[in-house]
């Protein structure tokens, strides 16, 4: 069953078509990734989904309800914004207390929830500290805890790991994916990190406000990216004999094949060459390049 249903969504800023007639659905419990460079329309779509921006056309339904219905739709979603938007001068505990009250969670119910989230995100020692004094990774943990205060069905993550070190990023994802498994949480992620998008159930590639591709990472790789067979300890004349595109990188040769089937056929046809080799699936970077004609690096284009 679709939790989010977006049909022909349009959002314009004067002459700029930030979101230009896009349609997609996100199933309940799905991990959905929105991939695109800065300015592709990812954050605008989220703003409309959260009810922060008015749309210029189309339908945005959450659980079958128009997001205009504040009480129902907003209570069902938690949002982690691109930047920390908590009150820097207030302690972590105060921030969570005042935000929780907006969902009717006060008193003992809040204390219980605070204990639960503190254990989950390792916040106990951070609770009395002002948010402004926390490191980037600590703030992000508090942000996510804030978004999960009211146990939403949908967690929207707007480039949540930008600026975080790899270790913090990894541990944050472990916690989130664990939560998803336990609570059947739907995750809607916007990102420009390919490896994050590759872990999603479904990826939509957005460029200049339009959807260019919408499929599972595996299908996208099958469709748009070539697999690579790396050969070691072979002569170039032998590789040339295979009759497929290749390139040399130091002592190894990278042979490009369409898919696993073609790789298997190649190996079985020339077993004498394949003593020391590895087959690597195509990467999301290749998919993005093939779909948009651009590479993606740190949110910028190259």
């Amino acid at each position: 069953m679709a939790l989010i249903e977006i049909r022909h969504l349009k959002k314009y800023y004067k002459d700029v078509k930030a979101v230009d007639d896009i349609s997609f659905t996100v199933g309940e419990g799905e991990f959905f990734a929105f991939l695109g460079v800065n300015g592709a329309g990812k954050s605008t779509t989220i703003s409309v989904l959260c009810g922060r921006e008015r749309r210029d056309g189309g339908d945005v339904l959450l659980g079958g309800q128009d997001v205009e219905d504040d009480a129902g739709a907003r209570a069902a979603m938690g949002v982690v914004f691109q930047d920390c938007v908590l009150d820097k001068a207030l302690s972590v505990r105060d921030n969570l207390k005042y935000r929780a009250a907006l969902y009717g969670i006060t008193g003992k119910a809040f204390d219980r929830k605070l204990r639960e989230l503190s254990a989950l995100f390792d916040l106990t020692e951070l609770l009395p500290r002002p948010v402004g004094k926390l490191s980037g990774g600590q703030r992000r943990r508090v942000d996510v805890a804030r978004a999960l205060l009211h146990e939403p069905k949908l967690l929207i993550l707007d480039e949540p790991t930008t600026g975080l070190d790899p270790q913090t990023r990894k541990s944050l994802w472990e916690t989130l994916l664990g939560l998803r498994a336990v609570r059947r949480l739907t995750i809607f992620l916007t990102t420009h990190y390919m490896e994050e998008a590759a872990g999603a159930d479904r990826v939509v590639i957005l460029d200049k406000g339009k959807i260019l591709a919408d499929d599972t990472p595996l299908n996208l790789k099958e469709k748009y990216a070539h697999d690579l067979v790396t050969l070691y300890h072979v002569r170039e004349s032998d590789v040339k004999m295979l009759g497929v595109p290749y390139r040399r990188e130091g002592e190894k040769y990278l042979v490009s094949v369409k898919n696993s089937a073609e790789a298997t056929a190649l190996i079985t046809a020339h077993p004498q060459l394949f003593h020391d080799y590895e087959v690597v699936k195509g990467k999301m970077d290749d998919v993005f390049l093939a779909v948009t004609g651009r590479t993606l690096e740190q949110g910028g284009t190259k």
Partner: peptide, 14 residues
């Protein structure tokens, strides 16, 4: 300026 308003208004209130 800080975006806290967006965060507050994500909650079900006017």
């Amino acid at each position: 300026v800080t975006g806290a308003r967006n965060d507050l208004l994500v909650a079900p209130m006017s």
